[in-house]
Amino acid sequence: MILPVVVYGHPVLRKVAEDITKDYEGLSQLIDDMKQTMYKAEGVGLAAPQIGLAIRLFVIDATPMEEDYPELKDFKKVFINAHVIETHGELVVESEGCLSLPGIREDVVRPSKVRIQYVDENFTPHDEVFEGFAARVIMHEYDHTEGKMFVDHLSPLKKKFIKGKLNNITKGNVDVSYRIKTATGK
């Protein structure tokens, strides 16, 4: 089932998400629904807070970007109870967008490597290091489980420039090809 994407201004996007157990009700269906929602919205990642659930779960399928970023070949993963252990490497500036911030793309500085511990959809534990754009996609989605969004990484001046766009998103005044949900339920 394709779910509405929660947009900027909704309080769930600012909550620190909770870990879940393997008997979380409907988890398998939820993961499938999140993937369908991500594909419908033409995203490469989707975190549970973006569909209104403050749980530590995000899905990624960044394979559409593999031509520009070879490390994304076959990069499809489910991250449950993810916790970043460390970030390192050089700081890299890349443009980012977000399904919860439709119409906004900005340059964001992030480290080039991330070490993350998580369990997959079978609750198999992983402790992995990702580099390059794969690390960026993971850190972007991980931020959602920490109650952060990519605009939080922008300078105060940049934030001031996009304030009008953020206000419009909060009100639901955006043109998107997918269903959205605002704080007011619109």
Rank of each mutant, 00 (worst) to 15 (best):
E128M: 11
D33L: 01
H153Q: 12
L3R: 15
Y39D: 14
T145M: 11
R110K: 06
I31T: 12
E42A: 05
I104H: 05
E94A: 09
A134E: 09
M139S: 03
P49N: 13
E128R: 01
K22M: 09
G97C: 06
V5K: 09
V151F: 04
Q50I: 00
Y39T: 07
L13W: 06
L27C: 05
Y69P: 04
K163G: 01
E71R: 04
R136G: 01
R56G: 02
H10Y: 10
L27A: 10
G89A: 04
A135T: 01
A17G: 05
D127E: 14
Y24S: 09
Y8T: 02
F58M: 05
V59P: 05
Y24D: 11
G132R: 00
K181V: 11
D61Q: 03
D61V: 01
V119L: 11
R105D: 13
S28M: 00
D68M: 09
A47H: 12
V109E: 04
E96I: 03
D120G: 03
T63R: 15
A47L: 10
N167W: 10
R115T: 01
D127G: 07
V129R: 02
E66G: 01
K186Q: 11
V7L: 08
Y24W: 09
A41S: 14
V108G: 05
S177Q: 07
K40F: 14
L53M: 15
E128F: 03
P102M: 10
K158D: 14
T124D: 14
H140W: 14
K171H: 13
M1V: 07
I162F: 03
V93L: 01
L53C: 08
S95F: 03
D74V: 00
I180F: 11
Y24M: 07
Y142I: 00
H126W: 15
K186Y: 15
D152T: 06
K73C: 02
E71M: 04
A17R: 04
A134Q: 07
P11A: 14
L157H: 08
N168P: 03
T63I: 02
N167M: 12
T124K: 12
R179L: 15
N168Y: 08
V151G: 06
F161W: 09
K15Y: 09
S95E: 15
I51K: 08
K165V: 00
E71K: 05
K35H: 12
K186L: 15
L99G: 14
L154P: 06
V92N: 00
N168I: 01
V174W: 07
G52S: 14
T184A: 15
D152W: 07
N81V: 02
V114I: 05
D33G: 01
Y8I: 01
Y178G: 08
Y39F: 15
T63L: 02
I20G: 07
N81M: 06
K181W: 13
M34V: 10
N167T: 14
F79I: 09
D107G: 13
G89L: 00
A134G: 06
V108E: 06
F130P: 02
I104A: 08
K73R: 13
V84N: 03
M38Q: 11
L13E: 12
L166E: 10
K163D: 10
D120V: 01
D74G: 05
K77M: 15
V108D: 11
